[in-house]
Simulated scan of single mutants.
Amino acid sequence: MDHYSWLPDHQQHVVYSLAHADDLIARTGRILHDFTARGTLELKNVTVGNTTRATVIGVAPIPQAVPRLTADALNQLRSTLEHVVYAEVVHQVGRALTPQEARSIEMPAAATTDDFDQWLKHRHRSNLAPLQPGAALCERLRDLQPFQRREPEQHPLRILVEHTNWSKHRTPSVAATLIGAVIPDGPAEGVLVSTAPNRPVEIGDVLASSPADVRVPLDIWPEISIQRPHCESWHNLLHELRDLEQWVREVALPALIAGTSRDVPPLPPHLDTTVGYRDFHAALAAARPTPAAARAARDLQVEVARDGLARIIALHPEGKKNIDVIKRWAAELNADEVLQKVESLQLPDLRQLDAVVRAMIADAGKTSGKQ
């Protein structure tokens, strides 16, 4: 608890709100993992003259839980900021707010200094001491405003507000499949990879082309993306959630509550809120430091590494003879084992590498023999 002594009693609610947002992001990540694992694109080689084109003929529909959970997570992050401002004003004035005053409390997101000054002049806000110019909370709010950046539209608070306004008043978050990368899997002489446009992939898009007599496998990386409403640009959905969650938790909340984000440890993001805790100390003891987006990224890293591990071992002469056994063995390794074994293959000496691969093949054979 001493680690978080900067968090006063009247702001302890933020830990549970952050945990709820983290859970929503984690659920989004799991759905996206399962969705992409089933395959998001259907391709067909279409030959035109002397050229073969890898052409999109089908795009899997994104589960509708994804845009809705994304919107819920973003709204939860914004609500957390609103709750902190409200709790701070109530704590500092030392009395219950009138209904009119309560309705006037919010987290502003001003594009200009004039906009912020006008926000402060609201007749029910201007009488509250914490929101008067020069007051600590007022200046903390000022420091977090989008106008503090050279490009206000790129400020995390502006992005968060635009996303949440859109999802509350228009539609759920706009999500779509884009092409992150297309990489030839092997010698690629004569292969032309199309530059992925910054828009959702469409049926008829050509991802790569090659001479008709050349066949090169392609690694295609679809990217589930979210559109920012105010500038209509597309961004990796989980990265957007990651960046905004991190800004709220590591920058905005410490700045609002403690007056700084540099000298205080960030609050823990991961806590099971379906469990009842005896007190706040017990909840903090159960919290974990790794946010949902980082956990999702590690899960993806493990899956890619697991697939790569089996493919690398299958290139060995002994591995080719036992490819099904190798795949079953790789599928049963836990996350830490997969990453450790992939790292052990990073050897420049071919004899050492051969010995390591043979040991893995033998281990896979032993595992298979136990079944």
Rank of each mutant, 00 (worst) to 15 (best):
V46A: 07
H13I: 09
E42Y: 07
V56P: 06
M107I: 01
A73K: 02
T51M: 13
G49S: 04
V14E: 09
H83S: 10
V90N: 04
R30T: 10
N45Y: 11
V59W: 06
D34M: 13
H10Q: 07
R53F: 02
Q76N: 09
R27M: 11
T55R: 09
A73E: 01
T80Q: 04
S79C: 03
R68I: 11
S104R: 01
A19V: 10
H20C: 14
V14N: 03
A60M: 14
T55S: 05
A65E: 08
Q11W: 01
V56T: 10
V89A: 14
A87S: 07
H83M: 13
P63E: 00
L97D: 00
T36K: 15
T112S: 14
V14D: 02
A109I: 03
L32H: 05
A109R: 01
P63W: 12
E88S: 13
H91Q: 12
L81H: 05
A26V: 09
N50F: 06
A65C: 07
A26K: 01
T112E: 07
R38C: 12
R53S: 02
P8F: 14
A110G: 09
T112W: 15
E42G: 12
V85Y: 01
H10E: 07
L77T: 00
V15R: 02
T80A: 15
L43H: 12
A37P: 02
S79H: 12
E88V: 10
V48H: 05
L7Q: 02
I25E: 01
H10D: 12
T98V: 14
T52C: 06
D23K: 08
P99S: 13
K44D: 05
V89L: 08
E88M: 15
Q76P: 00
P67F: 12
P63A: 11
M107S: 00
L32R: 08
Y16R: 15
D23L: 15
V56N: 05
Y86R: 06
G29C: 05
L74D: 00
R53I: 00
T70P: 04
L69T: 03
R78N: 02
R30K: 15
E106K: 10
L77S: 05
A37H: 00
Q64N: 10
R53W: 00
R27H: 07
S104D: 08
H3V: 13
L81M: 06
G94C: 13
T52G: 06
A26T: 01
T80W: 03
L43V: 13
L24H: 03
P8M: 06
T80I: 06
Q12L: 13
A102W: 00
E42T: 08
A60F: 03
H91A: 13
H83G: 11
T55N: 14
R53V: 03
L41E: 02
L41N: 10
E106F: 13
G39Y: 07
N75Q: 11
L7A: 06
G29M: 06
V84Y: 03
A60D: 11
H20E: 12
L7T: 03
D72I: 05
V89M: 04
V85H: 02
A21Q: 06
I31K: 08
S17H: 11
S5A: 15
E82L: 09
A96R: 07
E82G: 05
I62G: 03
D9G: 14
T36I: 06
W6P: 00
A19F: 07
I57G: 09
L69E: 01
A71Y: 04
N45R: 10
S104H: 04
L18N: 03
T40I: 15
R38G: 12
A71L: 09
A37I: 11
V90D: 02
